Simulated scan of single mutants.
Amino acid sequence: MLTPRHSYRSDEEDSARWTDFPFRDGDIVISTRSKSGTTWMQMICALLVLGTPELPAPLTVLSPWLDWLGEPQGTVYDRLAAQPHRRFIKTHTPLDGVPLHPRVHYVVVARHPLDMAVSLYHQSANLDRERIAELTGQPAPTGPPRERPAVRDWLPSWVDQEVDPRAELDSLPGVLLHLSDAWARRHEPNVELVHYDDLLADLGGEMRRLADLWKLPSPAPELVEAATFGRMRERADRLAPDTLGVLRDRQAFFRRGGSGQGRDLLDDAARARYEARAATLAPPDLLTWLHR
């Protein structure tokens, strides 16, 4: 068993749940930051592996979030052990927190951090915090909910936030830590980086590229159509990651699939501040690729 170099734990997830996981040759591990295309890549994997848009179970059942504490580890292990097909498993843990096996595939989806942050802001209002606390064994939130600033006012503070990137993975330092680790591994034969904007620009081409890398059949047009944002939003009841009732509105999970919304919310000075801060947190070639 290969031991990860780092451990990641929060109130809701624990990367240690990967330590004893019995991998199979050909497994696909989907490693992303929150709101960076996780569910989209899970759907792409489901379509490529199963070869049909009519999934036999909700997407989150087919592709569980292994390190989430809302479900017992044994339950998740047993469900994956019972799957006869190639498995595709979700994690928000960076690759340095997951065992890396040479016969397992790892795919990391990258999204412009400002766009990811805007989606994260809206997603926060759609989460049932009491239900999440119940599932993860945490104290229920008390008192009235805090009033949030408008997203236009919140985003610059997210850019400027000084935090430990290994403790606050959805911060700007945490996002760029996750992607920098994957970027350093991009030449490894079983690690693949996918840009969110490439999925927007040429979904069919990206699906065919991944199918070729993973030795899977090339997707028919109806499979590519099933992976479009609009079609996924129509099927939110089956595709949103919510079998245990943590979302207030499943359709709102698929709020918007576009790009550029974060940059449009910042004025010139705030955009310059973001670019300067990002330059201290990630290598320039990664940022050129990420921001293109």
Rank of each mutant, 00 (worst) to 15 (best):
L247T: 04
G137T: 07
G137L: 06
L55P: 04
L62I: 10
G97M: 07
A282N: 03
S119T: 12
E54T: 14
D202T: 09
R111S: 04
S15L: 06
P144K: 14
V107K: 04
Q83G: 01
D27V: 09
A269P: 00
S119M: 08
D198L: 11
G26A: 09
W18A: 08
E234F: 02
A278G: 08
G174W: 05
P221Q: 05
E12S: 10
L200S: 08
D268H: 10
G245S: 08
P221M: 09
N190C: 03
A282L: 05
P64A: 06
R248A: 10
H85F: 12
R256N: 14
R271Q: 14
Q42H: 03
S31N: 07
E12M: 11
G70K: 12
D198P: 00
Y121K: 07
A57G: 05
A150W: 02
L127C: 02
D198G: 06
D268Y: 02
Q83F: 03
P56L: 13
L55T: 08
R87V: 06
P149M: 06
P141F: 04
E162L: 12
A182R: 04
L199W: 07
D285H: 05
M41C: 10
F229G: 02
E222M: 10
H6G: 00
D268R: 14
M207E: 12
D249C: 10
T60R: 11
V159K: 02
L2S: 13
G51T: 13
F229E: 02
Q251R: 15
P219V: 06
S63C: 10
H195S: 12
G257F: 11
H195R: 15
L266E: 09
L50Y: 14
L203I: 08
P221L: 09
M43F: 01
P64D: 03
P189N: 05
A117S: 12
T243E: 12
R238Y: 01
V191G: 03
H122M: 08
Y196Q: 10
A16S: 15
L127A: 04
P72Q: 12
D285L: 03
G262Y: 10
L177P: 00
D115Y: 07
T60C: 06
L213T: 15
F88V: 02
A279C: 03
D160W: 02
V61D: 12
R263P: 01
A125S: 14
T136D: 00
A81Q: 11
E168P: 00
G258Q: 06
S157R: 15
L169N: 01
W65K: 09
P165Y: 01
V76Y: 07
T60V: 11
P141K: 06
R250D: 01
P156A: 05
P141C: 05
Q123G: 00
T32V: 15
D198C: 07
Q73D: 13
W158G: 06
P139C: 05
W40C: 09
A211Q: 09
S63A: 14
L199P: 01
I132W: 01
D237H: 11
G74M: 13
S171L: 07
L290V: 09
L172Y: 01
G205W: 11
R152D: 14
V108R: 03
P4A: 09
T75I: 12
G257L: 11
P99N: 13
T75V: 15
A220S: 14
V151E: 12
K215P: 00
V108M: 02
P219C: 09
A81N: 08
V107Y: 04
E162G: 00
L244H: 13
L281F: 07
D249K: 10
W40Y: 08
A252S: 11
E130R: 13
A140I: 10
R186D: 01
T228M: 06
